[in-house]
Structures are given as C-alpha cells and as structure tokens.
Design a protein around this nucleic acid. Structure first.
Lengths: 147, 147
DNA sequence: CCAGAATCATTGCATTTGCAACAATTAAAC
DNA sequence: GTTTAATTGTTGCAAATGCAATGATTCTGG
C-alpha cells in the first residue's frame, strides 16, 4: 500500500506536521504542551471559565483539563478556585503573568502559522477550510447515526 | 478566542476525530495501535521491508518502528530478522496469520472510512484532498526555507 | 588493513497518558 | 426530608512515549 495516496494517512500526517510547526514555537521556547496551549487559548481573553466549559469547548476530557490546568497553575499562568455556585466545579482564569505571556507568545505562533500558509494560494486555503468543515460535519453526522 | 474558527485547532481536532473513527475499528476489535496499524498497512502487500524503508515511508522514527514491530511480532502478525546484506538493519514481513488478519480487517476499516466520507459531496472531498496536498507541500517548503 | 566516525536497533529511565477508582458535591426519586 | 443516583475533580497504577545512552555493524580515510 502506498500511504502517499491513502487519505486517512495524508490527513493524520499533515495535521501532525502542521501542529508540530506550532509546537516548535510555544513548546520549544516556553515549555507548553498542546493541551496547555489549548486551555491557554481559551482562557487568555476570557475573564474566567469553568472546567465544564473548558471540556466542552475543547476535545479534552476532564483528566486532561485537570492535569493541564495544574501545570499552568504551577507556572503561575492561571489560577484555580472552587466555584461558588457548584462546589464540584473549578473556575479558572489567567493571571497577569499569563495574560502578559500570551500577548507575547500568540503573535509568534500566529506568525509561524501564517508563514506556512503563505505557501498556499488563496483558493487552496479556501479548499482546505471548506473540506475540513465538511469532514467535521460528516464525522458528526456519522456519530449521530451510529448512536 | 473561539476555537471553532481557529484553523490550527480545526485541523488538529478534525484529523484526530477522523483517526479515532478508524481506531474504533482496528483498535477496539483487534487491539492494534496507530503505529502498529501503520506498519501493518505497509507490510501487508509487500513481501518484505527493512526498518529503514519503514521509517522513510512513515512519519515514525526508529524507536517507534522498533517498538511497534516488536508488538506485531508478539502477536505473530509479522516476523523480524536481521538483514543479510547489512546486519544493522532488520527485515520485516507479514506472517500468514498477519496476511489473513489484514484481509479481514482492512475492508472493515475501509468501510468505516467510506461511511464517514459518504456524508460529504464529491466536490467537498476534492476540496479536502487538494487542500491537504497543498498544505503538505507548504509545510515542506517552509521546512526547507528554514534550513 | 585499520582506527575512528557514522549508522542502526534496542534498552533504561523519566515523563506522560489512559483508565478505573475514589471522595466530595449535587440532583433526583420517593 | 432522606436516601439513592449522577456528576465532577483528582489520584493510583499500568501502559505508552520521548530522549539519551549503549552495543553492534558498516563506512571512511588514510
């Protein structure tokens, strides 16, 4: 089998390679994992979010959220507290240091992403956006029909 | 930040979700990991491949190949031997049991993939193929210009 | 032919991850 | 109102992973 023409492999390996380009920035320079970066993206411009909101708005499960949040807390980038309205939930928000780091880091990540995407034409980028959105929808439809 | 419109997240999460759909088949039913499945795909219709060829034709490094191959060997799906021409290299090939399992498993995986992709139009699938190919090329160009 | 550099597969070790279990809290049933 | 079920965050433990080190083999330059 030639993997170069096998769609599942092309999707997985291309996505992985692109993600690695971004990890090269926020990981190598600042020691953040993918999960930490993902939470950081959500918390950066929100006042505060609960653990439930974080789980729902990412693909991370509760263990991943708990562990990534703990690491961000250890780095003093976010704070964790117990929700007043539901003591089972946690409320997270960025510290000042977190906001500052994000303001510095995000443009670098964005620059890296754009410098890769700059090698694609506008029409190619539109194709990719539409194709991905369609695939995402297809996966969702498939899951609901299986249930 | 709304991750739903953020390209890097859309790419990563969609690719992960699609991959998981296939893992549901070859992983849940047969206990194979992504890495094992990837080697299995290459070895299934090849007489034999060396470790070097496997590394080059996948995104797996030598440690991943060594460990995945060991597990496939433990399951009696492939054989490992030392190359005659270069005793540093290993030569892998499917066992009869491996060939048989692959013949049974691959159609199931393919059916699963097609049943997801069936929810996309032909034009959407073409967009995705073209967009992915363009992104892959862009990543490659970006890497070479950095070097 | 030979000494040193290079390449390969494997292993040890530390970290990460997935999954089940657990304690704390809330919701539901009656 | 009380008991039971359900939900949440965390932790323990086993398996997986990344990375450096190692041993074995081959290549290189004289």
């Amino acid at each position: 089998m030639n993997l170069d023409t096998y769609f599942p492999y092309q999707l997985a390996s291309t996505a992985e390679a692109f993600s690695q380009k971004l990890v090269d920035v926020y990981g190598r320079s600042y020691g953040l994992s993918r999960e930490e970066w993902r939470l950081f993206l959500l918390l950066a411009d929100a006042k505060s979010l609960t653990s439930l909101e974080l789980s729902q708005r990412t693909t991370l499960d509760k263990v991943q959220v708990s562990r990534a949040a703990k690491k961000l807390d250890d780095k003093n980038l976010i704070t964790r507290s117990i929700s007043e309205t539901d003591k089972r939930l946690r409320v997270y928000s960025c510290t000042d240091a977190g906001v500052k780091l994000f303001a510095e880091l995000f443009p670098k990540v964005e620059l890296q992403a754009q410098s890769v995407l700059a090698h694609m034409s506008t029409s190619e980028r539109n194709d990719l956006d539409r194709g991905l959105a369609a695939l995402k929808r297809a996966i969702s439809l498939h899951s609901s029909e299986q249930a």
